[in-house]
Amino acid sequence: MTAGLAVVLVLLCAVGALMGFRDAPNAAALPVRYRALTPRGALLLTGAVNTVGALLGIGLITLSVHYFTSPAVRSEIGPLAVGVSCAVTLVWGLLLWWRRLPGSSTHALISALAGSHLAVRLSLHIDVAHTIFDLVRAEVLLSLLLSPLIAWALARLLTALAMRLATRGTTVNVQHRARVGLGISASAMAMGHGLQAGQRMGVLWAAVLVGSGSVLAPDALTAEFVGGAFLFAFAVGLGTLGGAWRIAWTLTERLVRLDP
């Protein structure tokens, strides 16, 4: 592995740690707030599930990795653009943490990638209008349209069940169900965070390797890709253990008044 690839991998792992660090409050804040889980137990649980989710996300994305690694990144400029995007994401995430503000590391990374991709196209004197049109994919637009509708439909279907569990039985039984539900939801949210982080990393690390001249295919993964995948998943889990309690306090105490 060259020095340039090593630097980009370190930046990717740093972004993974930041994602885990900032995603931990979203998964663990409410279970800890209502004593469904202890702070240590919640972080260990979400850290482990986040790591597994990241590995699964990377494994799933390799099935169609060439679909995402466009010819624009198959050059020396591609790895440089990824490295710059990771640096921007790190600075933005740390700024939000310092200000105790919740935010999306994924959105920050995607925005940085879009900006760096546009800068690369401009430096190569490629038509900007064509670049913007090329970035807008039908799959992305369709997912943006369908995801809130699916979420609304699932919420409507689950409301009746949740109300039944929350209103039937004694207060002790209801609180016990609520704590179990919070523990399950924390695990599910951590798994989702890990899957998303793994998918982002899989695409970016594959793009970097393809840009550096490595042969990458689902049936012939290079040692660099596999090793980078495990390092990234470990970084996500390690970052989750950090906890980011500044954001957790904002979520449970400053944004809304909560009671059992």
Results as ranks from 00 to 15, higher is better:
A36C: 06
L45P: 00
P31F: 03
R33P: 09
V32M: 12
D23M: 11
T38R: 07
R35M: 11
T38Y: 05
L37M: 13
L30T: 15
A42G: 00
P31Q: 03
L30G: 08
N26A: 13
R33Q: 15
L44G: 01
R40V: 14
L30Q: 12
A36E: 04
R33H: 15
Y34I: 12
P25H: 01
P25T: 04
G20T: 05
G20D: 06
L43T: 02
A17N: 08
A17Y: 03
P39Q: 09
A27V: 04
A36K: 06
G20K: 04
A28P: 03
R40Q: 13
A27C: 11
L43W: 01
T46C: 14
A17L: 09
D23I: 05
P25S: 08
A42W: 00
L30N: 15
L37N: 04
R35Q: 14
A27P: 05
P39L: 11
G41S: 11
M19E: 12
T46V: 12
R22T: 15
M19K: 12
G20E: 06
R35P: 03
T38I: 05
T46W: 00
A17Q: 07
G16W: 03
G16H: 05
A24W: 02
V32F: 01
R33G: 04
R40K: 14
A42R: 01
G20Q: 07
G16V: 07
G41Q: 08
R35D: 15
G20H: 04
L45K: 05
A42F: 00
M19R: 13
G20V: 00
T38G: 14
Y34A: 11
M19H: 15
V32S: 01
A36T: 08
G41R: 09
A29F: 04
L37D: 08
A24D: 07
A27M: 05
A24H: 00
R22D: 10
L44A: 14
L43S: 03
G41W: 06
G41I: 06
T46M: 03
M19V: 14
R40F: 13
Y34R: 14
F21M: 08
L18G: 06
R22Q: 13
A27N: 03
D23A: 15
F21I: 04
A29T: 09
Y34C: 07
G16E: 01
A29Y: 02
P39I: 10
Y34H: 15
A28E: 02
T38A: 09
G20A: 09
D23G: 13
A28I: 13
A27T: 06
A17M: 11
P39T: 09
Y34F: 15
L37R: 00
Y34S: 11
N26R: 10
A28L: 13
F21V: 08
R35W: 11
R35N: 14
L45R: 09
L37V: 08
G41Y: 09
A42I: 04
L43F: 08
T46D: 04
R35Y: 10
P39W: 09
R22C: 12
L30A: 15
L37T: 06
P39S: 10
T46K: 02
V32G: 02
A29S: 14
L45W: 08
A27L: 08
Y34L: 13
P25F: 01
L45G: 00
A24R: 03
R40L: 14
P31W: 06
L18T: 12
R33W: 13
F21R: 00
A17P: 03
